[in-house]
Structure formats: C-alpha cells, structure tokens
Measured scan of single mutants.
Amino acid sequence: MDVFMKGLSKAKEGVVAAAEKTKQGVAEAAGKTKEGVLYVGSKTKEGVVHGVATVAEKTKEQVTNVGGAVVTGVTAVAQKTVEGAGSIAAATGFVKKDQLGKNEEGAPQEGILEDMPVDPDNEAYEMPSEEGYQDYEPEA
C-alpha cells in the first residue's frame, strides 16, 4: 500500500510541476504579447503594419512553449490582441483601416495563427491545408 501511495504522490508532483510550467509559459506569452502591443503603439504610420505582424510573430513563438489545451486559448487571445492593436492603430490615425491585415508588401496577414497546427491532446499534428499553395516548377 505504501508503494501505491508513494507512486500516487510522485504522479501528483509531476502534474503540479507540469501545471506550473504551463502557467509560466502562458505568463511569458502574455508578456511578449504586451511587449508587441507597446511596440505597435510606438510606431509611426509606416511601421504600424509591420508592428502588428511582430506582435503576432512574438506571440506565436511563445505559444510553442505552452502545451496542451492552453495553446488553443493563448492563440485565440493573441489573435484578438493583434486585431485590437490594429483597431487602436486605425482609431489613433497611425494607419488607414484599409491597410490593416496586410503586410508591407500588401499581402493579407489573416491566418497567421489560424494555420498553425495545434492539437490540445498532444496526440497528432496535421499540416495546414494546401489550398493556398501553388506547385513550383523550376525553369529549365
């Protein structure tokens, strides 16, 4: 019985440690998101679009440190934060509304985080759909 109880105690310690790591990862992701939003706020009209992409990228980098179902929630929060940063930029006159959601080359930025393969159960990952990809044929 002692062996059984000791095993359960060790398992509990492992769960607590994993929860603490997840909590730490979420806190880091939130900190990076805040950094990115402050970065966007300090940019001029020309830099705002690039700044919004930076927020998304920093958040995406930190999301990889967070495991399990938390990833889905962090990704949703990050996307809403990026959308909010863009709205703030438009409201303050840093950028025109028609410039939001495009990178410096004018290509749409939507789907940055949505296409990231995420499995809350950590069982399997699927690649994003290939609808947006084109076949590449090298020139002879």
Rank of each mutant, 00 (worst) to 15 (best):
M1P: 00
D2R: 01
K6E: 01
K6P: 00
K10W: 08
K10L: 14
A11L: 11
E13A: 12
E13D: 12
G14T: 15
V15Q: 00
V16F: 10
A17P: 00
A17K: 10
A19W: 11
A19C: 06
T22A: 15
T22W: 14
T22E: 00
K23C: 14
Q24R: 13
V26C: 14
A27V: 05
E28I: 07
A29H: 05
A29W: 14
A29M: 08
A30N: 00
A30H: 02
T33M: 15
E35I: 15
E35C: 04
G36K: 15
V37C: 09
L38P: 00
Y39R: 09
V40R: 01
S42H: 14
K43M: 15
K43D: 00
K45Q: 03
E46N: 10
G47P: 01
H50A: 14
H50F: 12
G51C: 11
V52T: 01
T54N: 09
E57A: 07
K58I: 13
K60W: 06
K60G: 05
K60L: 14
V63S: 03
T64M: 07
V66A: 09
G67C: 10
A69H: 05
V70W: 08
V71K: 04
V71M: 14
G73P: 05
G73F: 08
V74I: 02
V74R: 01
T75N: 12
T75C: 05
T75W: 10
A76P: 02
V77M: 09
V77P: 02
V77H: 02
A78P: 02
Q79I: 08
K80A: 13
K80D: 05
T81Y: 10
V82I: 05
V82P: 02
V82M: 11
G84M: 15
A85W: 08
G86D: 05
G86N: 14
S87D: 07
S87K: 03
S87C: 14
S87F: 13
A89N: 04
T92Y: 15
T92M: 03
F94N: 02
F94T: 13
V95H: 14
K96F: 14
L100N: 06
K102L: 14
N103F: 03
E104S: 11
G106E: 07
G106T: 08
P108V: 09
P108C: 10
E110Q: 04
E110H: 02
E110I: 04
E110T: 11
G111K: 06
L113Y: 09
M116F: 07
M116H: 11
P117E: 02
P117L: 04
D121S: 14
D121L: 12
E123C: 06
E123M: 12
E123A: 08
Y125N: 08
Y125C: 07
P128T: 04
P128V: 06
S129N: 03
S129M: 11
E130P: 13
G132A: 15
Y133D: 09
Y133N: 14
Y133F: 13
D135E: 10
Y136F: 09
Y136D: 01
E137G: 06
A140T: 15
A140P: 10
A140Y: 13
